[in-house]
Simulated assay, not measured.
Amino acid sequence: MPLTPEQLVATQKANLETLHGLTTKAFEGVEKLVELNLTAAKAALSESATHTQALLNVKDAQELVALQANLFQPLAEKAAAYSRHLYDIASGTSAEFSKAFEGKVAESQAQFASMVDNASKNAPAGSETAVAVMKSAVAAATNAFESVQKAVKQASDVAEANFNAVASSATNAAKSATAAAKKAR
């Protein structure tokens, strides 16, 4: 069954709409990243000025140690929060791309299956074996793709769990370091 010009135009239009949507999502991700970095830079500049002023007002070494100890825990927590925001932006944008890709793959699989069904209806007598092999290959390819999707989802879940564990460990380590520095005073 040959493609008609209308089908080609409709396919191209759908592809352009998908491309526009993905480009828009990519720019939204970049905007969020720029906003996050500007916010972090402003906060770092402000905190640096405040910390410098506090350093200039230090009267003895004990006060200096206390000031430095109080700096570490918030710094680690802010770094963990920044990393979490960064991860959320990246995973959100990636999820949009994955969703679009999966939709296009499902649509292509459905079209291909429809084409195989149409071809099998119009196949000459005696080609039932070839048609069955073709349908079996399509089913195997579909199952393989679904298996890969599941594996990627599991790997993504493991990566997120590991990221959360590392962020939690870093925050706890900073709290421990702060507590140890306070005891040393």
Rank of each mutant, 00 (worst) to 15 (best):
N70M: 08
V133Y: 08
T18E: 12
S176R: 07
K99C: 09
K59F: 03
K13V: 15
T93D: 01
T39G: 14
N143L: 11
L55P: 03
T52E: 08
K183P: 01
H51Q: 12
E28W: 01
E107Q: 14
A79N: 02
P5C: 04
E17V: 06
A177S: 00
N57M: 12
T142R: 12
A180F: 06
Q68G: 01
E96Q: 15
P2Y: 06
A76T: 07
G126T: 03
L3E: 13
A137Y: 13
V65T: 09
N118K: 11
E107C: 05
A161Q: 07
V116K: 09
A110L: 09
Y82E: 01
K153H: 06
S147A: 14
V9P: 02
T142Y: 08
V133E: 13
L86E: 08
V133K: 15
Q53W: 03
T50G: 11
A113S: 15
A80P: 05
L86D: 05
V58C: 02
I89Q: 01
I89S: 01
P2D: 07
S91F: 09
A44I: 03
A41E: 05
T178Q: 14
Q154Y: 04
K183W: 07
S136W: 09
H51E: 07
N15K: 10
A159K: 03
L33H: 02
E102T: 13
V131N: 11
T171C: 00
A113L: 12
E160S: 13
T4N: 04
L86N: 09
A79M: 04
L75Y: 11
L64S: 01
Y87A: 15
T171W: 00
A167Q: 10
Q7G: 06
K121D: 04
A106M: 12
A139D: 15
M115V: 13
Q12L: 15
E6A: 10
K121M: 07
L16I: 10
E102N: 12
K59V: 12
Y87T: 07
A95P: 08
A174S: 04
E31R: 05
S156A: 13
M134D: 11
G103N: 13
E107D: 13
A95D: 07
A140H: 05
T171D: 00
V116W: 08
V9G: 00
V152W: 07
A137Q: 15
Q149G: 08
E96P: 03
S46D: 10
A139L: 08
I89H: 00
N37Y: 01
E96M: 09
S91H: 09
A10Y: 01
A49E: 10
T50V: 08
S91P: 04
E77S: 02
Q53H: 09
A161P: 00
A106R: 11
D157F: 02
N164K: 06
K25P: 02
L19V: 15
Q73S: 10
A173T: 08
A26S: 04
A125I: 01
M115A: 15
V152Q: 14
E146L: 08
